[in-house]
Amino acid sequence: MSTVAVPKKRSVWDGGVSPMNVSYGKLMMWFFLLSDAFTFSGLLITYGLLRYSHPSYEGDHSQFTFSTAYWPIPEKVFAAVPFFEGVHLPLVFVGIMTFILILSSVTMVLAVEAGHRMDQKDVEKWMLWTILGGIAFLSCQAWEWTHFIHGEPPGTLMPDGTVFMGANLKQNQYGPPAFADLFFFITGFHGFHVFSGVLLNIIIFYQVATGVMHRRGHYEMVEKVGLYWHFVDLVWVFVFTFFYLI
């Protein structure tokens, strides 16, 4: 009697194949982004929690003035645009920043698509546009932070009787201290992600330009930094809604 082993039905989890059909690096990027999503969710949920534990402004929308007694209406705070100082243009600058980030996400997909075609020149072109978009966004944010910190006259009366203009971590002219704290923390944490994304993009752009990816035979590194870059855009979509619109 021969001992022929009856082949058992093998599952994809029995080894030898890649059940998720992606490389190790790409899978780990996905799981890192998932954990990062939890971090950002924690921050935004904290924003909601702190906001609703402060009194909100009850009154006519057009009569709104800054006070530390209630949470500010975001569009009244973010209403400044460079070169139009003193003109009340609510949310215009944030809208521009949103479009810059979405467009840089688009150029990133185009870079990934060019990578599938092994078109080095196209990958270089689109990655460069992506990097420029990232730098433009960071520059906008630098201006926004500067404006937020320095504030606008005449300032607001603080609980201790002094008049304060601008914002720091202890007090601000727009509303309760927690408002500026959350602004610095959430947009700062997102801005740091954009900053590190730009750095990663520059490193990968350098490798693409020197032909490293072409010799390797695939452009998967572009896809991996692409995932990170889209995630940064994704987070901004949520920050835009929960911090600026609502």
Binding site: M20, N21, V22, W30, V106, V109, D233, L234, V237, T241
Partner: peptide, 25 residues
């Protein structure tokens, strides 16, 4: 909030290519 989730869907599904990945992923 609803519109935000619509945008999030398109970014994750198309730009991050998730809808073309294996179901378990």
């Amino acid at each position: 909030v609803l519109m935000t989730f619509v945008k999030a869907f398109y970014i994750v599904a198309e730009f991050m290519h998730l809808r073309y990945e294996v179901k378990v992923l």
